[in-house]
């Protein structure tokens, strides 16, 4: 996977309007190679339209998008891309095995390679026993699984998964998590569009919060360094002077009797805060640091009004 700039996806002011409706206002995004990237936002935030623009299914009104170093939609680059559309469906008259054969041929894969590769994938998604069953007899979850298999058929460098766990039971969801992990381990980039924040939290390296087709914030998920931490303390002898001194670390500070709460952008500063408090004569009895969950970040950044 040798491409110049180390980015799998790069967009600049990508915009899409339908008649008088703005679907994506101006998406500026950078997705590093080899990462699992979560794309989060409320309904109608323009997530699916953004993915479609990156895949060349929808033409942007303005702006730029580069995928694996080529303009979005470049036909040859698609050999290195896998895509699971939301609510995957295909011709009901094909069997699971035949579906993978068709998609393999569209990828230009030789028959001999497909003969080896298809059973492996059917096994991976747990559909080996249903290889000769017609898609019209598949359950929603089985369709999603075979869709996942076709997205991985060509060992893609970049995989787009649009709500991959929709229609899946807990076992299926676990399977998706394991598959995403396996993709990261083999060095692929995964672009995950999901509204299940807990799922994103355990699978993604980095997330982008989207609203009205704009990136509000991009941040790392793993490690506390980049996530806001809320600290609650039980303290005595804390005066106004100490409180104002705390403002240099905390994004906000509040004292309610013996209960002191403040938030720091980086948990690394906590020992320094402790030294400051004790050196200024405060008594500290209890310290409870609490890393902000993705859900809290989401609500804080995107807002909770929801856009349906």
């Amino acid at each position: 996977m040798s491409h110049g700039n180390g980015l799998a996806i790069r967009t600049r002011a990508l915009r899409k309007t339908f008649a008088d409706k703005v679907a994506v206002a101006g998406l500026t995004l950078q997705v590093p190679r080899g990462e699992v990237f979560g794309f989060l936002g409320p309904n109608g935030a323009g997530k699916s339209t953004s993915i479609k623009m990156l895949l060349g299914l929808v033409g942007p009104t303005s702006g730029e998008a580069e995928v694996l170093g080529e303009p979005a939609g470049h036909v040859e680059t698609r050999r290195k891309i896998g895509f699971l559309p939301e609510h995957f469906q295909f011709y009901g008259w094909l069997t699971g095995y035949e579906l993978l054969q068709v998609h393999g041929r569209l990828h230009g894969m030789p028959r001999s390679r497909l003969r080896d590769r298809i059973p492996v994938l059917l096994d991976l998604v747990g559909l080996s026993a249903h290889r000769d069953k017609r898609l019209r007899d598949f359950s929603k979850g089985m369709l999603q699984r075979i869709g996942l298999a076709q997205a991985l058929l060509n060992d893609p460098e970049l995989v787009f998964l649009d709500e991959p766990t929709s229609g899946l039971d807990p076992i299926g969801r676990r399977l998706v998590r394991d598959i995403i992990k396996a993709q990261r381990e083999r060095g692929a980039t995964v672009f995950l569009n999901s509204h299940l924040l807990s799922e994103v939290e355990v699978t993604c390296d980095r997330v982008a919060f989207i609203k009205r087709g704009e990136v509000l914030q991009t941040r790392l998920v793993e490690g506390s360094a980049d996530l806001q931490t809320t600290v609650t303390m039980r303290v005595k002898k804390v005066g106004a002077e100490i409180l104002s001194g705390l403002a240099r670390w905390g994004t906000w500070v509040r004292l309610d009797g013996e209960r002191l709460s403040f938030a720091v952008a980086n948990a690394e500063v906590l020992p320094e805060v402790m030294r400051y408090l004790t050196s200024h004569g405060a008594d500290v009895f209890e310290v409870i640091p609490q890393r902000q969950s993705l859900e809290e970040s989401f609500l804080q950044i995107v807002g909770d009004e929801g856009e349906l």
Partner: peptide, 14 residues
């Protein structure tokens, strides 16, 4: 309208 075309049109085929 069903979205079936999306799985085809994102393959290396014009």
């Amino acid at each position: 309208s069903s979205g079936t075309i999306q799985a085809i049109a994102t393959k290396p085929i014009r």
